[in-house]
Design a protein around this nucleic acid. Sequence first.
DNA 1: TGGAATTGATTCGAGATCAAACGAATATGA
DNA 2: TCATATTCGTTTGATCTCGAATCAATTCCA
Lengths: 190, 190
Amino acid sequence: MAERSTRPIQERTTAPATTPGALDLEENILAAIRRIVRAIDIQSRKLVASCGLTGPQLVTLRAIDRLGSPSLTLLSREVSIGKATLTGIVDRLERQRLVARTRDSADRRRITVSLTAAGEKTLAAAPPLLQDRFRSELAGLRDWERAAMLSTLQRVAEMLDAEDLVLDDLDAGPILESDRLERGPAKRSS
Amino acid sequence: MAERSTRPIQERTTAPATTPGALDLEENILAAIRRIVRAIDIQSRKLVASCGLTGPQLVTLRAIDRLGSPSLTLLSREVSIGKATLTGIVDRLERQRLVARTRDSADRRRITVSLTAAGEKTLAAAPPLLQDRFRSELAGLRDWERAAMLSTLQRVAEMLDAEDLVLDDLDAGPILESDRLERGPAKRSS
DNA sequence: TGGAATTGATTCGAGATCAAACGAATATGA
DNA sequence: TCATATTCGTTTGATCTCGAATCAATTCCA
C-alpha cells in the first residue's frame, strides 16, 4: 500500500464501460480463474508422475472410452479442445500404444480413434483428475452447495464462450449437458 | 437434442471410486473449467490482433504498473505465474520495448521490471481482458450475484490450489486480496 | 574468514493451446 | 460430368505452462 497514494487514480484512459468498481471485480475474477487453471495444470503434472498421463490425455482417453470410437472432430467437440491440439494429444497417446487411429472406410477423410487393450487397462487404473483435497472438500459440501458451485462455473463458462464458439469450426449444436440442475433465470440475452 | 436419448447412461468402465454420482459432478466441473480456460485463451488471441499483447502479457503489464518496479519473484506471486513462465513473458515484453529489466544495485541477484514510456502508452490503450459480452452480462447482475460468483470462483481456487502451493517456491503468505467481500465461513482447514 | 545453505533468475525439455494454411476426400451444383 | 465448395485431419508457428537443473549472488554459521 502507501504506494497507492503516489500514483493518483492512474488515469483511466480506457473508458469505465460499466459501473465504477466493476473493473476490480473483473480482475479478481480473472485472478481466481488463473489460480484455478494453474492448480489444475500442476495437478496434471503430478498425474504424469503417477500414471504417465497428463490431464488432457486422461480426459481424452475417458472421452474415447465413453464415445466408443469417435472421429477426431467429434472428440474435439466433446472435450472442448481444438482439433489441432487434439492431434498432438492423440499422437502422444498413440506413441504410448494406448489408442489406435483407424481410417474410416466409409468416409476416408475421417479418422476414428479407439482404445487399445493397454489403453483400457491404463484408464481403469488412472487416478482421479482433481486433487484429493478438492474431492474430499467437495464431498463435504451439501448437495445444494455442490449444485450451486457447478452451476456458477457453467454460468461463467457460458458467459465467456457462447460468444466465441469459433474454434476451428465448431458449429454444431450446444454441447451443454449440465445434468438436470435447473438453469435459473437463464438470461438468454442476445 | 434427440441425441440425448441415444446415449443411455454411458457404461462406466472406470470404477466409481467415491460416492456414486460424485464422479459425474467432477467431470462436469472439469468440463466447465475447460470451457472457461478455452474461452479465455481464445480471447487472448483476439487481443493479440487488436493490441499486440496476449492475455498473460497484458496481465503482467498491469501488475508491473500496479506494483511499480517489482522483482520477478514478486511479480510471479502477484500474477500466479511460475518464474520460469514469467521469464519468457517478460522476454517478449522486453523485445517489444514495453518493459525494461534492471539489475537491483542493492541485491544484485534481483531483477526489477519496469514499464517504458511505450509500455505505459500501450497499457493505457489496451482493451479489457474479458469478452465484452461477459462484461455486460456481469454488469447486468445484481450485486450479490456478482459477489457470489466471485466468491465461488475463489472458493474453488482455494480448494484446488491451497494444497499445491509448490510452484517453484512460493512460500510467502497469502496473497488473497478479495477487496472487502467478507470471506464467509472462512473454513481455515489445514 | 570461508564453506554451506539459501535465494533470484534463467535455461532446458516436454506438453498444451489456438488460428491459419494445407492437402486429401467428399458433397454440391451446374 | 466436372468444377466448386465443404469437411476432415494434419502441419506450422507462436505462446504459455510447469518442474528440474543451473548459475550467480547473498546470507548464515562455524
